[in-house]
């Protein structure tokens, strides 16, 4: 006797979104699936893409990252080149942390100049993140949008600033990362608000805020799963590609504390902390991962099945 395996079919499909590349680069297309990750049913035309974060501000790197990227830390453009050509990052996430008053306080014009320089140097798709200071970012996004000679994605638009960031993106033809603080209602609401403004949905990816392993990852996984289930069940406002920024994994003491010898080699530990965070996000349904450790590009890409 044969038993027919139950097959789960969803009425919805995740919107396909492309992060455009420069001349000679390869654009990254994600989304388009009508099934859950790693499940046998449904088609998933695009596999999740793994990119790397490049920060413009000075910071004290955890030992694991210090060993891997420390020599390039002061030179974002050189680091960006290496991320793409050396380590296989399919896209870059440039965080303009250097413009934050607490980590260098570089001028908005400096930030915009760095964007221009990096886009010239690397043809890969680029997402540009603000510095996190509300007042500075309000000036930074318009300046970056104007400076970027080819389309990028601006990260991020949230309830408080979406009009400004969306305006900047519309003015110069860029895309947006819509951000919400681990809250499915707010994740939906920000997409609704962007839709009300007339922002083209095929230029939006969602960032539901990623907590690192041991520091909120389970909340993120739950929200990503629910966003995906809601989207596949027919909620168009949530049927959007999801981006997970793994940077938070490095904030865990376990990822960076060399003083606890009993926890094993801190170099390996840090890398694995980020990797594990990333694997969980993939399982939850993430379409775009942003990591910092070069070796994780390969491991996470290897785990990102279609």
């Amino acid at each position: 006797m044969t038993v027919a395996l139950p097959e789960q079919r969803f009425p919805g499909r995740v919107l396909q979104v492309t992060l455009p590349a420069g001349p000679g680069g390869t654009p990254v297309t994600v989304g388009g699936q009508n099934g859950l990750p790693y499940a046998p049913e449904g088609d998933r035309p695009n596999r999740p893409a793994v990119g790397m974060e490049v920060r413009s501000g000075a910071e004290e790197l955890p030992p694991s990252l210090e060993a891997a990227i420390g020599s390039l830390a002061g030179d974002p453009v050189a680091l960006a080149r290496r991320c793409v050509s050396g380590w296989g990052a399919r896209f870059l996430f440039l965080s303009l942390t250097g413009c934050h008053p607490d980590s260098g306080g570089r001028s908005v014009a400096d930030g915009a100049a760095l964007v221009r320089e990096l886009l010239d140097a690397v043809p890969a798709p680029v997402i540009v993140g603000g510095c996190g200071d509300e007042e500075v970012d309000a000036r930074l996004f318009p300046a970056v949008a104007e400076a970027a000679a080819r389309p990028v994605f601006l990260s991020y638009a949230e309830e408080k600033n979406y009009r400004l960031v969306a305006g900047a993106a519309l003015a110069y033809g860029h895309g947006l990362v819509s951000w919400s603080p681990i809250d499915i209602n707010m994740a939906k609401q920000i997409n609704l608000l962007l839709a009300d403004l007339g922002f083209p949905p095929e230029r939006v990816v969602m960032d539901p805020l990623t907590g690192g392993l041991g520091y909120g990852l389970e909340y993120t996984c739950s929200i990503v799963e629910r966003i995906r289930l809601a989207g596949l069940s027919g909620d168009g406002m949530l049927a959007r590609p999801v981006l997970c920024q793994l940077g938070d994994a490095w904030k865990a003491r376990e990822a960076s504390d060399a003083s606890e010898a009993s926890w094993g080699d801190v170099g390996l530990r840090g890398r694995r902390w980020e990797e594990t965070t990333g694997l969980a996000c993939l399982a939850a349904g993430a379409d775009l991962l942003v990591c910092r450790h070069p070796e994780n590009v390969a491991t996470l890409s290897g785990a990102a099945w279609r």
Binding site: P142, A145, E146, R163, L164, A166, G167, L170, A171, Y172
Partner: peptide, 12 residues
């Protein structure tokens, strides 16, 4: 237009 338009979208 692009520069000022941002602030029209923004509401400022």
């Amino acid at each position: 237009l692009r520069k000022l338009g941002i602030f029209m979208v923004d509401g400022s």
